[in-house]
Measured scan of single mutants.
Amino acid sequence: MDPFVVLVLCLSCLLLLSIWRQSSGRGKLPPGPTPLPVIGNILQIDIKDVSKSLTNLSKIYGPVFTLYFGLERMVVLHGYEVVKEALIDLGEEFSGRGHFPLAERANRGFGIVFSNGKRWKEIRRFSLMTLRNFGMGKRSIEDRVQEEARCLVEELRKTKASPCDPTFILGCAPCNVICSIIFQKRFDYKDQQFLNLMEKLNENIRIVSTPWIQICNNFPTIIDYFPGTHNKLLKNLAFMESDILEKVKEHQESMDINNPRDFIDCFLIKMEKEKQNQQSEFTIENLVITAADLLGAGTETTSTTLRYALLLLLKHPEVTAKVQEEIERVIGRNRSPCMQDRGHMPYTDAVVHEVQRYIDLIPTSLPHAVTCDVKFRNYLIPKGTTILTSLTSVLHDNKEFPNPEMFDPRHFLDEGGNFKKSNYFMPFSAGKRICVGEGLARMELFLFLTFILQNFNLKSLIDPKDLDTTPVVNGFASVPPFYQLCFIPV
């Protein structure tokens, strides 16, 4: 058959498939802009700032609406009420993970971030239990974070109060905490193996944040037939998995079943207990991918939040002064901060919360999916439909947070200066898919920041009023603009 005829037939089939998918069930789905064949609503979305586009569309179609990214149908949730109703009140029905062709290629359905069903539930339950087990290797997770915080302070001392970009050092600290939990080992910041790991993690975040990856996920045929950065992403992930597998083999040879040292040991012990169960989800494949998931999810998000926190503290020296006064009063100079201190430091706690609220790190979270046909607000959402959640619409709700575009710790303080919780605080998402490392991340943010401010004054290279804190939105995360500062020993 003539190649031209084959091409026309293929394009015609794709067009018909697109029209059929977009028209099927439209009477039951939430409203939304009319999609174009094949490309859907992509032309109506700013790929570099999806969150802003969703906010604009919500003003037209309401808090629940339908979009098509290519052939992929998505239902968008915008605003606290619908997000709570879906992710919390109907948590089980909305607990699936959205379709990610690239991740599915890399992870093969294993791990904790992109798995679904029984596998996801069992691996998540085990990971939560293990991360909360403060007795691994007779050292609590808090001990590990405190140790890394001391190392971080010593690295900052080496800058000798000269101007520096904190990106690298602030990236090393949370990565080392995860390494300590998974591998029972922290690395020197100049260790070549550690630097290679950091390089792969950072490069992957840069790649994932590009519009090209959005295109690959919406048109998965590209993955096999086109060159691009997605190939580098898959190569980096394969490198990390190979490295983790080597460490798993080392653990198998040296493990003491009665004295687990780290996450890998705990997983291997669980595998041993379930070795007679042919349906067990505790396999080497799941261990390797879960460890890679924890490394990827637990490094860049925390380091970016820390980097943004220091920029905001530079911009608002009056806030920094209040935090340091609270540190001096509650902790002093002669001991290290600990998590028990947080309950006695409402202002510092409010500042950490406000940093996370203000920066809105992951504006749309990772997409969910419905696990069955769901009736939601008089609409029928078919099983498997991807759910896109606007966390921006919750964290920047102007009824809950007056002047949401302003950095103001009073958003989390009552009139008496006591810490005030808010149900709208969802930087880790909400419901059954809430970030498994939430507790660890909150511990790291509090301890790293208090250790830094206990030991250093922060000095800006320019007038604080002239510092730009506008986030650089890159399609996946909101990151701070480049800046330098000086760490002046107190």
Rank of each mutant, 00 (worst) to 15 (best):
D2A: 12
D2N: 09
V5G: 14
V6H: 05
L7D: 00
L9Y: 10
L9Q: 00
L14H: 01
L16Y: 11
L16G: 11
R21C: 10
Q22K: 10
G27D: 14
L29P: 06
G40K: 02
N41C: 03
I42Y: 15
I60E: 11
G62W: 00
V64R: 01
F65Y: 13
F65N: 03
T66R: 04
Y68T: 12
Y68M: 08
Y68F: 15
G70N: 04
L71H: 15
E72F: 04
V75T: 04
G79V: 00
E81R: 08
V82Q: 05
A86T: 07
L87S: 03
D89V: 09
E93D: 11
S95G: 12
G96M: 07
E104A: 15
E104L: 10
R105E: 03
R108H: 11
R108K: 15
N116M: 06
R119Q: 09
W120R: 03
K121H: 12
R132V: 10
R132S: 14
F134M: 15
I141R: 04
Q146T: 13
A149F: 05
E154F: 08
E154I: 08
T159R: 06
T159V: 08
I169E: 06
I169N: 05
A173G: 08
P174A: 15
N176I: 01
I178M: 15
Q184R: 10
R186M: 03
D191E: 10
F194T: 05
E203N: 07
S209R: 12
T210L: 09
C216P: 05
F226T: 08
L233T: 05
K235C: 08
A238P: 04
E246P: 06
K249D: 05
H251M: 01
H251V: 01
S254D: 11
D262M: 01
I264H: 01
C266H: 15
K270Y: 09
M271H: 08
E272D: 13
E272F: 10
K275C: 10
Q276L: 11
N286P: 02
V288P: 01
T290H: 01
T302E: 05
T304P: 05
L311F: 09
L313K: 00
L313S: 03
K322H: 07
E326Y: 02
E326L: 02
E328P: 01
I331D: 01
I331T: 04
S336H: 12
R342P: 07
M345S: 02
P346S: 06
T348E: 00
V351E: 00
V355Q: 00
R357L: 01
I359D: 00
I359Y: 02
L361R: 03
P363Q: 03
T371E: 09
P382G: 04
L391Y: 03
D397T: 02
K399Y: 11
F401N: 01
P402G: 12
E415C: 09
K420N: 07
F428Q: 02
K432Y: 10
I434W: 06
C435D: 03
E438N: 07
G439C: 11
T450L: 04
L458V: 12
S460V: 07
L461H: 09
L461K: 12
D463A: 00
D466L: 12
P481Y: 06
F487W: 06
